[in-house]
Write a protein that binds this DNA or RNA. Structure first.
Lengths: 146, 146
DNA sequence: TACAATAGTTACCTAGGAAACTAATGGGGG
DNA sequence: CCCCCATTAGTTTCCTAGGTAACTATTGTA
């Protein structure tokens, strides 16, 4: 019985960890006028290159409406552009020159935050944690599509 | 360099896992007209007994405003009562008879969901994951108070 | 007694999901 | 071949969840 109860604790821990992490990211990005959801999009665009909005949704595992909002804010700040694709329904999102120039500074801040948060977690444990969580997430999402 | 990049992935995995879990909880509780944040409060009250609102906040690691909202909704649904404490500022929250009666059914639903989600994760890995995440969270919160 | 600290609320912000909608695309039947 | 219809990309609206700042009311203390 004690076993089953502890599952509540596991879920709670993950939830709390997630909130703490995004709070840290927000604090780190605040000087630049950016928020965590925006950073996630900027990072993907920088790493993978330009992408349609739906591709961004799928990659970040986020529904369409929040993505629309995040991109509209980024566009208003002049960090991304939306060009219509071959298919006239899609909008291809790309980083602007302004974003390309500012990006290194953003990345420095985020990476140094990452280092700070992870310095107390040995490399080996980090890798193991990552693989466990990823495997679990994969199985969870797999089950949903059965 | 590849190493540092992977930290983005770790954070993203945790974030996504957290969202998936609360989505599952919400789906499970929807038939009862409850949401995940409410369930967290009900669970703590059932497990620990009546508590002041600020004690609930601390225990669940949530700020005061969201807690006020969650409790007000629970009160409106007749699941918790708020009695003024000795100190006239505090409100002591307790489960109503209605909640006590419905609780076992809620718990059954949630526990069976837990089992379903965790059946693909070996007991041993679960325990290890829990301890790693908890330790990390503890260190993170510890650093903030330095 | 004046003042700092605490409990809780209110107002406003970001993040995300569900449902209903619009516009464009792409396939079958006639 | 063309039209109707299902599908898809994005948007709008409205909901929950959580955080910050500013506020009120009470308490405790210097």
């Amino acid at each position: 019985m004690g076993d089953r109860m502890e599952t509540h604790t596991l879920f709670h821990t993950i939830h709390q960890l997630s909130r703490q992490l995004t709070k840290q990211v927000n604090d780190t990005l605040q000087p630049f006028g950016l928020y965590s959801a925006q950073w996630a999009v900027l990072f993907v665009l920088k790493t993978k290159g330009q992408m349609s909005q739906s591709a961004l949704c799928e990659y970040l595992a986020v529904e369409a409406p929040p993505m629309t909002r995040t991109i509209q804010r980024l566009a208003k700040q002049g960090y991304v552009g939306q060009t219509p694709g071959e298919d006239k329904r899609v909008k291809v999102i790309h980083l602007t020159e302004k974003a390309q120039q500012a990006y290194p500074e953003w990345e420095r801040a985020v990476l140094s935050m990452n280092d700070r948060l992870l310095e107390c977690v040995p490399e080996e444990q980090r890798v193991f944690m990552q693989s466990l969580l990823n495997e679990w997430l994969g199985k969870m999402k797999g089950d949903l599509h059965e």
